[in-house]
Computed example of a mutant assay.
Amino acid sequence: MCITCGCESHRSSMGENQNHEHEHHHEQHTHHEPQVIHHHYYHNGDVHHHYHITAQEPIAKTFIPADVQNHHDKHNDNQQRLVEIEQHVLAKNDHIAEHNRQHFAERHIVALNLVSSPGSGKTTLLTQTLGYLSTKCPCAVIEGDQQTSNDAERIAQTGVPVIQVNTGKGCHLDADMVHKAAHQLTLPDNGFLFIENVGNLVCPASFDLGEKLKVVVMSVTEGDDKPLKYPHMFAAAGLMIINKVDLINYVNFDIQQCIINARKINPNLAIISLSCVSGEGLSDWFEWLEAQQCV
Rank of each mutant, 00 (worst) to 15 (best):
G15S: 13
D208W: 00
T135L: 10
L125N: 00
G6Y: 05
V68A: 08
S149L: 05
N78K: 13
D189S: 06
S134M: 00
N113S: 10
Q80P: 04
H232M: 11
V295H: 02
V245Q: 06
E23L: 12
L173G: 03
L114Q: 02
R101G: 00
S117T: 09
A237C: 02
F234K: 03
M218R: 10
P58T: 09
V36D: 03
Q147W: 11
R81L: 11
G144A: 04
H22A: 06
L228G: 12
A291L: 04
N243K: 01
H43Y: 10
S278R: 00
N76W: 12
N200E: 03
G168R: 12
S219H: 06
L247W: 09
C7D: 08
N100H: 01
A105P: 01
C137Q: 08
N100E: 00
Q18G: 05
L82M: 14
A182E: 06
P34D: 09
L185Q: 15
A66H: 15
P58M: 05
V115L: 01
A205V: 06
I271R: 01
A205E: 02
T148N: 14
P118M: 10
Y42E: 07
L90W: 05
E86Q: 13
H52R: 14
E106R: 05
L274D: 01
E211P: 02
C7G: 02
D284L: 01
H40R: 14
Y42M: 08
D94P: 01
H20Q: 12
I142W: 02
D224G: 13
R11I: 08
E290M: 10
C139G: 03
N268T: 14
K92E: 15
N166K: 07
L90D: 07
G238A: 09
Q128P: 01
P58Y: 14
T186S: 12
C171K: 09
E153S: 11
A55Y: 04
N166H: 06
N190S: 04
Q256M: 08
E211K: 00
Q157F: 06
L193Q: 03
I242W: 07
G238Y: 08
M14D: 04
A182K: 04
G159M: 04
A66N: 14
E57C: 11
Q102A: 07
I241C: 07
F104G: 01
N100T: 00
Y41C: 13
D151C: 11
I85A: 13
Q293H: 11
R101E: 00
D225S: 07
E222I: 03
Q292V: 04
Q256R: 15
S134E: 02
K169Q: 07
T4A: 15
L282I: 10
W285Y: 02
I155L: 03
I195W: 01
Q80A: 12
L126K: 02
K61F: 11
I260L: 15
E280L: 09
P161E: 07
V217Y: 03
I271E: 05
E84L: 14
T135A: 15
I163H: 01
A156D: 10
E98C: 00
A235G: 15
F104L: 00
H38G: 11
N249I: 12
P34S: 13
G45W: 02
D224N: 13
K74G: 14
V245N: 03
E8T: 09
A91C: 12
I271G: 05
Q292K: 04
S283E: 13
Y132D: 08
H50C: 05
D208Y: 00
Q157P: 07
G281M: 13
D151P: 08
Q164T: 11
N200K: 10
H71M: 08
L130V: 05
N266W: 01
